[in-house]
């Protein structure tokens, strides 16, 4: 296997020309998101360059503190993104969300790196990229789960009210909403597993193959990361929704505050 061909800056810049095609399509279809396209591609470029510089530094000077700081920043950012999309959650629900994302994501990451790969927990080459994939997907999953939960509760106020009136317990009333939102949050991950290898060669595997890794090694990593992601998404979502739903009422008065 050959190592990857280094991209030359001049040639690399050619890829940005493709954005012009996107712009033309947006113009023709009158999609008024030109600003977003420009801002998001610029943000992506700057953020990734920064990440590249920081990772280069950390790989050259490996230190547990750097790894912890990087993971902390990733976790914090994931939690922040989920919470900023769901501003009207009560403070206890927010706390539960944060703990669930951090807890599920970091535990799965530790299991993966320490037991499955068999590397040290502070080896930046493994912990940071795998952590990024686990955290990123957990963030998307929990975001979707919480959004579905809030929307379905909002749409079905009359159901909740009617059940409260007949004397059903708040737990019995809210549990179906938790179940439904959890299912919705898990489906994208489960579906992506189904198409994997046929419809698409996933990003991590592609990256490893481009870098010269044997395909069989890279598929093992891919399978492992998919299962890790699925577990992290499921646990984080379950924690957020199950314990979060309990913050919406108090046991004694059984008053549900949405």
């Amino acid at each position: 296997m050959n190592g990857i061909i280094q991209l030359q800056i001049g040639q690399f810049l050619l890829i940005y020309l493709l954005l012009l095609v996107v712009l033309v399509v947006m113009r023709v279809c009158r999609i008024d998101q030109t600003r977003l396209l420009v801002v998001s591609s610029m943000k992506m470029t700057v953020q990734l360059i920064l990440a590249g510089l920081i990772l280069t530094y950390i790989f050259e000077h490996p230190h547990p503190l750097f790894v912890v700081a990087y993971l902390g920043a990733m976790t914090g950012f994931s939690i922040h993104r989920v919470l900023s999309k769901n501003r009207d959650l009560n403070p206890r629900f927010r706390l539960v969300t944060g703990v669930s994302i951090a807890g599920a994501g970091l535990c799965v990451l530790a299991y993966f790196v320490a037991l499955v790969v068999g590397e040290g927990l502070f080896n930046p080459q493994y912990v940071i990229p795998i952590g990024g994939m686990v955290m990123g997907n957990t963030m998307t999953g929990v975001s979707l789960g919480v959004k579905t939960f809030r929307e379905s509760i909002h749409d079905q106020r009359s159901k909740i009210e009617a059940l409260v009136c007949v004397g059903a317990s708040a737990e019995d009333i809210l549990l179906p909403f938790v179940r439904q939102a959890l299912e919705t949050a898990m489906l994208p991950t489960l579906n992506s597993m189904v198409g994997m290898g046929i419809v698409s060669l996933p990003g991590m595997m592609t990256g490893q193959i481009l870098a010269g890794t044997l395909p069989m090694t890279s598929i093992l990593y891919q399978i492992a990361i998919m299962i890790a992601i699925c577990t992290a998404v499921t646990c984080a979502c379950f924690g957020t929704l199950y314990f979060g739903s309990k913050t919406l009422y108090d046991k004694k008065r059984q008053i549900i505050q949405l």
Partner: peptide, 14 residues
């Protein structure tokens, strides 16, 4: 509260 709500039953408008 739950047995109470069954005794004092509200038929909501919605």
């Amino acid at each position: 509260i739950l047995p109470y709500r069954r005794q004092v039953l509200l038929v909501p408008q919605a």
